[in-house]
Amino acid sequence: MAVSRLSSLAAAAPAPVYAAIGEGAAAAIEDLFLDARLDRAASPRHAALLLVCGRFRDDDIADLCRLHDQLPHPRATLRWRAEALPGFTPDGVDLAPDADVAAALHAVYRALVAGARASEPALLPDEPPNPWRGRGDHGQGGEGMMGGVPYGRPMAMTDDDLRDGLALDAYAAPFGPFLSAFPPGLRLDLTLQGDVIQKLAVARPPFDQPLEAAHPLRLAARMLLPLGLPGLAERMLRRAAGLAPGTPAAVADLARALRWRGARAALPPGLGRIPGGGDVRTRLDGLLAAAGRGEAAPAPGAPMALSELLVGREWAEAMLVLASLEPGWLRRACRADMPHAPSEDAA
């Protein structure tokens, strides 16, 4: 009795969904999560449903499989406006392009909670992607208890620090392309010391998104998430969702809310400065002003490489800088950091 009551309580919860956002899907996903029946999970560990939406590159399929296997049981995958993905074959649900997606997601969630739908098994074998390469005092191949690449993954090893000269552990790992705090599709090979980015290489640039996804209010809302203001971000997205392109938005109340909540003051002056494009704070102001006039997001200034903006920054600051960059400008900045970047036309 108690169990069934707990089940019905759980079934009434918003469905926790992790979104794998592909090319052309960013705005649709943002609008979808305005629905109170859904929770947008920041980590796949917090989700029951994986929503796959948009077009993906061949390189992304392996990451998509890994992402799928990180969801705890019970779990289910739903594909919406997604092209066929050879190699990514969970026994999921395909939604029609014009389906009531929120209702469909919640129905699958309820079926999972009630046990009426079986949880999806893992797509990949539960074993290290690379063989053991043991060497050294603890079999890991480095020095002492540090360093080496025991399973093909580099372990922390001391390295010179950019800021204060302390030789702290450096940790190298790929981040993305489905990290919730990154623009969709961006995959970076980063070396971190503490939470400071020491080295950066772009493995894959963010996906191209339609003009609608670059509405200034949407860009401003994405900057509010790392500032811990999801409520205000949702209010901005709600306003952007109902607007035809080129229509001026009422932004006086939003600008006032930004000031009262300390969002402008929270942004360090000079952070992410681009010649001719201001810093993160002026870019946020510029986005609100552009939305008020019904214009597109302002041109962000002179071209730069992403590494010039992010190397030496702490993680939280780097996420703010990333969120403040106009999508087209960011794609060009990423290509400057890719040694064998295909041209924009080829992509």
């Binding site: 707990l6 309580l9 919860a13 918003p14 029951a48 705890p72």
Partner: peptide
């Protein structure tokens, strides 16, 4: 509370 009930169902 509903979210908590779901977490009790989750692995």
């Amino acid at each position: 509370l509903r979210r908590a009930a779901f977490l009790l169902h989750q692995q």
